[in-house]
Amino acid sequence: VVEKVLDRRVVKGQVEYLLKWKGFSEEHNTWEPEKNLDCPELISEFMKK
């Protein structure tokens, strides 16, 4: 389960987000493609920053 979106990048035309996973430490954060995500409210919250 995604706890928080930390960053955004574009790699080869694909948007990816750096995710903080609930119950895991920062060392387990991962970059995931936008198309694989199902957390629009967290993405929206990140984009407001």
Rank of each mutant, 00 (worst) to 15 (best):
F24N: 09
L18D: 00
L19R: 01
S25C: 09
V1F: 07
L6H: 06
K49M: 13
D7G: 09
K4M: 09
V5H: 00
E32Q: 10
P40N: 11
G23Q: 06
E16W: 02
L42P: 05
V5D: 00
V15G: 02
V15M: 08
K35P: 08
E34Y: 04
L42E: 12
E41K: 13
T30K: 11
L6I: 11
V2R: 02
D7M: 04
E16V: 04
D38A: 11
W31L: 01
P40S: 15
K49T: 10
I43H: 00
M47V: 09
R9A: 01
V11Y: 05
F46Q: 02
K48Y: 05
K4N: 06
C39F: 04
K48P: 07
V10T: 13
E41T: 13
V11N: 05
F46L: 08
K35A: 12
K12L: 14
M47F: 10
D38V: 07
E34N: 01
V10F: 14
E3Q: 06
S44T: 14
V10C: 06
E16N: 03
K22L: 13
R8W: 06
K48I: 06
C39V: 11
F46H: 10
L42T: 05
R8H: 07
Q14N: 07
K12W: 07
S44R: 12
M47W: 13
M47D: 14
L42I: 10
N36C: 06
E45A: 05
E32R: 12
K48H: 08
V5N: 00
I43E: 02
V5Q: 00
E34H: 07
D38C: 06
G13E: 09
K20H: 07
D7Q: 13
E41Y: 07
P40R: 13
N29T: 12
R9L: 00
D7R: 06
F24V: 14
E32M: 15
L19Y: 02
T30G: 06
E3R: 00
V11K: 13
R8S: 11
V11M: 10
G23E: 10
K22W: 11
K20E: 05
K4I: 05
P33Y: 12
L37F: 12
W21I: 04
W21E: 01
P40M: 15
E27D: 14
L6T: 07
M47R: 11
F46V: 03
S44V: 12
D38S: 15
S44M: 11
I43F: 03
K20Q: 10
W31F: 00
V5F: 01
N29G: 07
S44A: 14
E34D: 04
T30L: 03
E27A: 13
K22Q: 08
L18A: 00
V5M: 02
P33H: 11
V1C: 04
V5P: 00
K48E: 14
W21D: 02
K22A: 12
L18I: 00
E26A: 12
G23D: 15
W31Y: 01
E41Q: 14
L19D: 02
V11F: 10
Y17E: 01
L42N: 03
P40L: 11
I43S: 02
S25Y: 02
V5A: 02
K20A: 12
N29S: 13
C39W: 02
Q14V: 12
F24G: 11
K22F: 13
L6P: 00
V5C: 02
F46A: 03
K22E: 12
T30A: 08
F24D: 04
E27Y: 09
L37A: 09
N29L: 09
L42K: 10
P40Y: 09
K22R: 14
Y17L: 06
E45F: 09
E3H: 04
K12T: 11
Q14Y: 06
E26L: 09
H28V: 06
K35N: 11
P40T: 15
V1A: 07
R8T: 12
W21N: 01
W21A: 01
V1G: 09
E3K: 02
I43Y: 03
G13M: 04
V2D: 01
V15N: 03
F24T: 11
L6W: 02
E27Q: 13
G13R: 07
H28W: 03
F46T: 03
D7V: 00
T30H: 05
E45N: 08
E3T: 04
M47T: 15
N29W: 04
S25G: 15
E34K: 03
W21S: 01
L19G: 01
L19V: 15
E45K: 10
K49V: 08
E45V: 08
L37M: 13
K4W: 04
G23P: 02
V11A: 11
R9T: 01
L6A: 09
L18R: 10
K20F: 01
E3C: 05
M47P: 03
E16L: 09
H28A: 08
S44D: 14
L42W: 01
I43M: 07
H28C: 13
W21T: 02
E34V: 08
Q14K: 13
K20M: 09
F24Y: 12
K20Y: 02
V2M: 08
K48A: 15
K12C: 05
K12F: 09
K4V: 06
D7F: 02
Y17T: 01
E27V: 13
S44H: 13
E27N: 05
I43V: 12
